[in-house]
Design a protein around this nucleic acid. Structure first.
Length: 374
RNA sequence: GGAGGGGUGGGAGAGUGGCUAAAUCCAGCAGACUGUAAAUCUGCCCGCUUCGGCGUACGGUGGUUCGAAUCCACCCCCCUCCA
């Protein structure tokens, strides 16, 4: 069984390139991890996800515990086998659902009680139960249960929330020691909203507890790109250089490029798949909405240079038609394409960091995409 | 020829005196989506507009009324049944 490890191979400014080893394989960083909440990267076959260059996908504790149930997945051989993804899997703890399902949950020191959004049944998620579920699923990388408050939030509320997440971090680590199999890893999550003192306190105490990787949570929750980068600017320089740094839930291509420039190694985001299902595609020439009337007669593919079948073998006119006709294939192809674009972006950054040309990469990205990278 | 029913905004289809530039759905045109309650949601959708309004509008014409898509008369067109 391969032990969890992180090897830093190259740096260029604050940007880093490396490799994470897990029991189910290696992850080249900076990495983008497609989100497969309910045991599927929505509308994309696992082999296609893999072919885009993804080394790892996400699963979700809250969603999988409700349906089909963690014990059931375990008895069927674990999540890797269940979803036909033999490569690394990272699971979120359910912490995000503390925010996104805030109308359906109650927060206490012990944990979070949810009313299921599916059938209304009552469920309790404690730091211990969340880790137990993630171990039952067999996740290679697991997340502590945390509270992910939206920004803006008052300083005292943010401090209180962050300290609750810290106490949960300790309990999560203790439970992980009880349930985990060799090679699995549990990450701590830095909170503190957009307050420098709180982010520093959160980080120092997490590092004192000691984790094999650290996440930056509670960003991309309403604060805007500039503010998010400002928080990273006073957070990442103090993070353990020997450990992977994971910016949770981010983001748009320009967010990711800017965060890599600030020393982040791992990302996940629903955008390439969700927006893909809704008609938005990212290409090297920027973002577009395939539903727009201007594509009705466009014979060009989305981005032939990517080499992904979805990006190369179908005209924008055809994709436009599929969306206007409400055909399933439209969302499938656009999700697939977006994942390919994201992975191409990550591969480009890894190569640039290794070659010492990351600044040139950023300049080219800015010019081609028309995006602002602060 | 006789009897009955009906003509509303791109389509379907509510509305039967003022609360109606006219419900709702579809189509159309845009936008949003960031550790997924999302194949979802939002806005626009007669013309002009300084976004407060102004103009025109419910088959046609005329009328009743303070006021008509709504009531009356005639005309045009469509559907069903009977001869």
């Amino acid at each position: 069984m391969t032990a969890f490890s992180f090897t830093l191979n190259a740096t260029d400014g604050a940007a880093r390139a490396g490799v994470i080893a897990t029991p189910h394989g290696e992850i080249a960083t900076p990495a983008f991890m497609p989100v497969g909440t309910a045991g599927t990267v929505k509308a994309v076959l696992p082999e296609h996800v893999r072919a885009t260059g993804a080394d790892i996908v996400l699963g979700n504790t809250y969603h999988l515990m409700l349906r089909p149930g963690a014990e059931r997945v375990a008895s069927l051989g674990g999540l890797h086998k269940f979803m036909n993804w033999p490569h690394p899997i990272l699971t979120d703890s359910g912490g995000y659902q503390v925010m996104s399902l805030s109308t359906l949950r109650k927060l206490t020191e012990d944990g979070v009680s949810f009313q299921s959004h599916i059938d209304g049944s009552a469920h309790m998620l404690t730091p211990e139960r969340s880790v137990e579920i993630q171990c039952l699923l067999g996740a290679d990388i697991q997340m502590q249960l945390d509270e992910c408050p939206a920004i803006p939030i008052a300083h005292d509320k943010a401090a209180e929330s962050m300290r609750l997440s810290l106490r949960w971090a300790e309990r999560s680590k203790r439970a992980f020691g009880e349930y985990a199999k060799p090679g699995q890893a549990l990450f701590g999550i830095v909170q503190g909203a957009n307050y420098e003192d709180l982010r520093r306190e959160s980080l120092e105490k997490l590092m004192a507890i000691g984790f094999p990787g650290y996440s930056v949570g509670g960003l991309a929750v309403g604060e805007g790109r500039e503010e998010m980068f400002r928080v990273l600017d006073f957070t990442t320089p103090h993070m353990d250089k020997a450990k992977p740094r994971y910016l949770m839930g981010v983001g748009k291509p320009a967010d990711i490029v800017g965060a890599v420039a600030r020393g982040i190694d791992m990302f996940d985001c629903v955008l390439p798949t969700r927006a893909g299902r809704h008609g938005q595609a990212w290409t090297s020439a920027g973002a577009l909405n395939i539903k727009n009337a201007r594509f009705a007669d466009d014979p060009e593919p989305l981005d032939a240079a990517l080499g992904c079948p979805a990006s190369r073998d179908y005209s924008k006119a055809y994709l436009h038609h599929l969306f206007k006709a409400g055909e399933y294939l439209g969302p499938m192809l656009l999700s697939w394409h977006n994942l390919a674009y994201y992975q191409s972006l990550m591969a480009g950054m890894r190569a640039a960091i290794s070659g010492g040309t990351f600044n040139d990469f950023v300049a080219r990205f800015r010019e081609e995409s028309g995006e602002t990278v602060v």
